[in-house]
Amino acid sequence: MRSNSFGPKASWGLKLAALGGLLFLHVPILIIFLYTLTPDETTYTFPLPGITFKWFGIALQREDLWRALTLSLKVAAVATIAALILGTLAAAAVYRSNFFGREAISFLLILPIALPGIVTGIALRTALGGFDIPFSFWTIVIGHATFCVVVVYNNVLARFRRMQGSQIEASMDLGANSFQTFRYVIFPNIATALLAGGMLAFALSFDEVIVTTFTAGQDTTLPIWIFSQLTRPRDRPVTNVVAMFVMLITFVPIFLAQRLSAQSSDTEGETK
């Protein structure tokens, strides 16, 4: 008789509970996908009264959606670039020197995601108002960059720490100056971390709504458009299509970023 049950087998109860948790995480999203096919325009009746594909076509025709989408993509792109630069600089500084206040820097960078989004949002809004800065594309970007920086920073710093420290010294020792060392040694080493961090930052910015509601003024990003539909539903079926689209478009970079991080830790394991 086995004296302990911690073999490879889990009990049925545990398996069931785990499966339940997993379904709870994912089934609701599938329900949105289901509703993109409903012919019902005014309610969320279930079971669906029928099946139609026309909403995809209608959504494609909507000018306002295209504008919102373009704005969201532009904001996410610029915020990601800013986050890549600022996050990498901060990670490099924290990695290379043991100066006083390293902890404080990590803490400062993490604040925008540790504090509720509404705090960042209302703080920025109040500051913009207080200094009479008009809302614009750039005020949205500034808001997004505050919480995107930490994503890049975390990814890049983790990679720096896994990188063999002596590689940088080896490069300098072999005659490369700091800039050459960055180009030929550091950059190739952190490239996938930058890619992963950048994609996560992009996904984060692309569907951010809380801070955006405070810094966007009259501009409508895609999440703001969805939010307005949530409070005053006018185009329910089109919203379903947009929701599914947002889910899919953010899924790709998130999935790739996950794979990238997993892969790079695998290959490092091999070389050891």
Binding site: Q164, S166, S171, G175, Y184
Partner: peptide, 25 residues
């Protein structure tokens, strides 16, 4: 020039490029 305890070879370059690194820069 230095030979490091952990070798410090550049993992993203092949052996020849590693050796030629000092010449490349």
């Amino acid at each position: 020039n230095t030979v490091f305890q952990d070798y410090a070879l550049f993992p993203h370059m092949n052996v020849a490029d590693n050796i030629a690194y000092g010449l490349m820069v």
